[in-house]
Design a protein around this nucleic acid. Structure first.
Lengths: 231, 231
DNA sequence: ATTATTAACGTAAAAAATACGTTTATTTTT
DNA sequence: AAAAATAAACGTATTTTTTACGTTAATAAT
């Protein structure tokens, strides 16, 4: 990695990042997709991405575009993998680092998103995307499913206050299967990382469901102990 | 990722890969570490790595150096993550993609390895490595532990024929804890991916332990069904 | 033949996951 | 004001999985 002779060979290698942005919109998992307005590939659909600048880290680069597009800062984000096939980009040799982000779908700046030509799509209604972006989405979805097995995803995708039925519907959306509400509740509460609030959400039922919030401190402790959050 | 103005800014970004090479040497997990013989950092310890050439994928690059160093081909390898802090390499901006490899420690070419100044170290005897290579090793170790939970690692690290006690000692090395041999055997055999051979290994006991081999077909089926291999 | 040693087999107890029935709080309808 | 409707909350029995641990078997060395 330090041999001088490689310097020249590599002066045409580019590195970028593409963001797979998940949102959860009452009961449905969605992805933020862009209709391209600039060359190349005008009019085609793609993920949002950027080249990585010399003076920024890859996650900086992703945060930068995410902020430009959604107005959000401090969004949860994690590296997925690199996409580096020699021929993946017909223009030139470019490695892209896929990063997936989880955002609260109520938080983002609607005007900004619309201005950039972005739209929310469900996983199965996704249009054809440029390059290997469909693959990226598929990989991100698989990763999200696996991640949900040992970390409470709800933290990032749900609003501050949420009900157990909401949390369950998020898990059902991720795993694509119905779960038993009694067992779900039992399991989720057994971790002791949820705090029950006095307030109720009356929008989805007559009885109303109590709001909960995460106990971040306890959650961190649990993770430190290496305890898994399998639902 | 396609905007022209970035081209210039990025003509000094380099991309390389570093390999975290695991071997299993009767009961002990080891890592292949190099004492550098060329500038920069002569005499210091590091992982083996290379720049990624314009006409090769990142895993090609890793396979290439792995072959140069160990004489091995078709080694199991998986991307770990990118190491991309702006200041990680004092010389210039270089993103490194960490990749971990699992090799059968009896297979590699001893002369070749020695010629390149490489040595096997256990995880806790590891010397200080250049740059962020110690971090890479730590991350790879963590990944290996997690991976071992849902895939039969033995496949890659053990010889073609292996005994159950050997497989168990591999898992014990990975998890750093003793396991109950009766439960381990029960669990491992319950997956139905091991084929018992007639032959016995007599080197470690008077009674001798039967050799087993993997049933690759069944194993692939299991993975396709999404079944986890939790031991 | 006896002893030593690790492998192989088996079973009981504890814990976790699953399946499913009943009650409760509230709003809407009558 | 009572009855009906509805989703939430609570609880318990059954099944499955995990854990703990005792016994027997095969072989080489003595």
């Amino acid at each position: 990695m330090w041999e001088k002779d490689y310097y020249e060979v590599h002066d045409k290698m580019y590195i970028g990042t593409d963001c797979i942005i998940f949102g959860f919109d009452n009961g449905v998992l969605k992805l933020l997709i862009f209709k391209r307005r600039i060359e190349p590939n005008v009019g085609e659909y793609s993920l949002i991405g950027s080249f990585v600048k010399l003076e920024e880290s890859i996650s900086n680069a992703a945060s930068r575009v995410l902020h430009e597009i959604t107005g959000l800062q401090n969004v949860f984000m994690e590296e997925l993998k690199t996409y580096n096939a020699v021929e993946r980009d017909p223009g030139f040799r470019c490695v892209s680092v896929g990063q997936y982000a989880l955002i609260r779908i109520d938080d983002y700046d609607k005007d900004l998103v619309e201005k950039h030509g972005a739209m929310w799509y469900t996983f199965d209604e996704l249009p054809d995307l440029v390059l290997d972006h469909n693959q990226m989405v598929e990989d991100a979805m698989a990763r999200l499913r696996r991640k949900a097995k040992y970390q409470p995803i709800g933290l990032e995708l749900l609003p501050e206050k949420f009900t157990l039925p909401q949390l369950q519907s998020l898990y059902e959306a991720i795993y694509q299967r119905k779960m038993d509400s009694r067992n779900f509740r039992k399991k989720v509460l057994s971790f002791g990382v949820l705090i029950k609030l006095e307030e109720k959400d009356k929008t989805s039922s007559r009885k109303g469901a109590f709001y909960y919030k995460f106990d971040y401190e306890k959650y961190k402790e649990l993770l430190a102990q290496g305890i898994y959050f399998v639902v």
